[in-house]
Design a protein around this nucleic acid. Structure first.
Lengths: 209, 209
DNA sequence: ACCTGAACACCGTTCAAGT
DNA sequence: ACCTGAACACCGTTCAAGT
């Protein structure tokens, strides 16, 4: 509700908006709250950025380049593909609000172009045919993004009710599931572990033809 | 803005809300528009359902059972696992608004319990060990849900700008990507084809050890 | 039991007016 | 050039009041 700290530059406006989005999510960013944070009347914002959409456009523009830069490491093609997948996941998880904003603006192809290019180079080095490579790139991309979006969702959802633990304790026998497996399913897994496991499996399967 | 058609039962209220959500998405469902659609004052809705949250709860309750029911078909373990993945995808795509609502309510474990159980039975039949089975179930589940959420997103996003075609025509050489591969990446693929391909790869890789 | 209307606290946005 | 205040059309929700 306070803030002040000098004049309202476009720079400071976007910085503040970005911080608010990172803290509370895009949905909770209101022009009026942002104005209060800046210590200014709501309508002042409309002079610097046109409107709410244009403000979000500016946030996307600020972050897009950071996410697009991909690091590749490793000796074998499999290791290098895995490192691309990991790098992409890490960058996206660091800015959980960005994917949605990018998607709403039709910028998804632009955002993932460098990652696709990096994957294409590695698959070519591994000797994969053109049509197979194009499909494999898509498969890895969808896999990684899907994982990130899901993790972001579950991070923001309330505590499961009923919990997986309660459900499996009660339903294992009725569902014809081995109690030992059920007790494993009752445990919550680190999303990173599931990502590592399934991405390795997918990549090795893609490379083996 | 009109509608009327008899008294406002809880039944008719939920039916109407569900139709509006399917047409325009959850975000565009307002109590005032729903009231107008029913030909009644806004506040009448609050008598039948407590508030907006409770209304959405009722929508979820109505649809949860349908999505949970999973069909399994096929002879080999791989074919049966694939049929579970396909069935899950089909059910989720038919109700694109549901996943988000379920997640916000902490009902995700409940929703996917039957699918997890079906996967567990098939993996046990294939002779997979407990810890591996629990991980494989998670991997398939994340893969499928991730794909569905992404497809839903791209269905709702505007036409990509710049398009993948334009991007690849311009950047293929600079990115060190084989032009033939780039032209494949420029084409848009049927999401169903990518899903079939990558899910087959993942499942075969999981089953082979 | 079922519904209405007024009211309150929120939105995004426009526009004339101030300095 | 930069900002304010009033105003408009939207929200969800509460509450007293009607039948």
């Amino acid at each position: 509700v306070t803030g002040a700290a000098g004049p309202v530059t476009r720079q400071r406006l976007i910085d503040t908006a970005l911080r608010m989005v990172e803290e509370d999510g895009v949905g909770r960013l209101s022009m009026r709250k942002l104005a209060a944070e800046l210590g200014v009347a709501v309508t002042a914002i409309y002079w610097h950025v046109g409107n709410r959409e244009a403000l979000l456009d500016a946030l996307v523009e600020r972050e897009l380049a950071d996410v697009s830069a991909i690091r590749v490491a490793g000796a074998s093609p499999g290791a290098r593909l895995l490192s691309i997948a990991r790098s992409l996941r890490k960058k996206l998880l660091a800015r959980p609000h960005l994917i949605g904003l990018v998607n709403e603006r039709g910028l998804t192809p632009l955002m993932f172009l460098p990652a696709q290019a990096a994957l294409a180079r590695e698959l070519a080095a591994a000797g994969m045919q053109q049509a197979d490579a194009a499909m494999a790139i898509r498969a890895i991309q969808f896999h990684v993004i899907g994982f990130v979006v899901l993790q972001r969702w579950s991070d923001r959802s309330p505590a499961p009710n009923p919990s997986a633990e309660d459900l499996w304790r009660e339903h294992a026998v009725r569902a014809g599931v081995d109690p030992a497996v059920a007790s494993r399913l009752a445990e919550s897994l680190d999303p990173g572990d599931v990502f590592e496991f399934s991405t390795r499996k997918l990549i090795s399967s893609l490379l083996s033809g």
